[in-house]
Design a binder for these strands. Sequence first.
DNA 1: TATTGTTATACTCTATAACTATA
DNA 2: TATAGTTATAGAGTATAACAATA
Lengths: 158, 158
Amino acid sequence: MPIVRHPANLPADLVIAVAVAARPLVMVWGRADAIAQAQASPPQLRALVVVGHHGSLNLNQLADELGVIPSSASRLCDRLVAAGLLDRKVSEQNRREVVLTLRAEGQRLLKTVEHDRRDALADVLHGMRPGARKALLSGLEAFAEVAGQMAEQDQWTA
Amino acid sequence: MPIVRHPANLPADLVIAVAVAARPLVMVWGRADAIAQAQASPPQLRALVVVGHHGSLNLNQLADELGVIPSSASRLCDRLVAAGLLDRKVSEQNRREVVLTLRAEGQRLLKTVEHDRRDALADVLHGMRPGARKALLSGLEAFAEVAGQMAEQDQWTA
DNA sequence: TATTGTTATACTCTATAACTATA
DNA sequence: TATAGTTATAGAGTATAACAATA
């Protein structure tokens, strides 16, 4: 069940308006992933993002972050290794663990996705008035700050 | 290759800032889908959204909108019908076609997702200052308008 | 003959359960 | 014995190719 953090109600209209207005942004955001799908499936791409973010991690950590069980993550890694995107080695410290890192090709793919995403966003931003761009950026930043605070809180409570 | 619509360059910093700031919004947006995953897989949910949006369509139309081939869409429908979420009947007008419509259960699921999405957004919006909320909304609406115009253009050019 | 769907087959993603190897 | 991964098996999602039914 969701925790209600702010008892005071917002006008439902505002929430609905934001939900409606946010959809195109979310769609544009997803375009880069659609393009990258030619090189790696969505689950594979998510795994690469997680590994890239950590630099190096073991299989259970990866499975945790992906929200899948280790078995599924192991199979996913099989294919990423076979595709030359991921490196999987036995850990020196603990020979039960594996060390997962990105290969150069995997890093390159992530860069491409990020670049494509910015291109897709820039394509729309170009067509906006400077004032609207400013409003969007400041609004998104405020949203991000609150969402970040809430995520932190959840770490303590969870 | 992406079409460059606005030769004049934006400051790269602005695009990067938007890309960074937009991520939490995209993540919050996706929460509702993660919850709904217990009732229907992501592809199934996407299919339900398309059918719900059209009210009624045939298999090729569904496949087109999902970006999959008819064969895949047919199998997807098999499972949605089996799950009691979708109705598939032979068309009266053209007995080659099928008519896909949502069952009550499918409609209910879509409502739930939409509601959960608004809840997740409202949760963050509550924590924002009124001015920031206004900026976010107006910025998103401006973005949506430009994105919409570009999508229209693409229909003519494609 | 062209259009609309479905079926056969194969590969990816995922979970459950059973297993191996290391600590 | 507990922990870290892998493998066997099975169902979902997808594409390619072959097929059936209708127009």
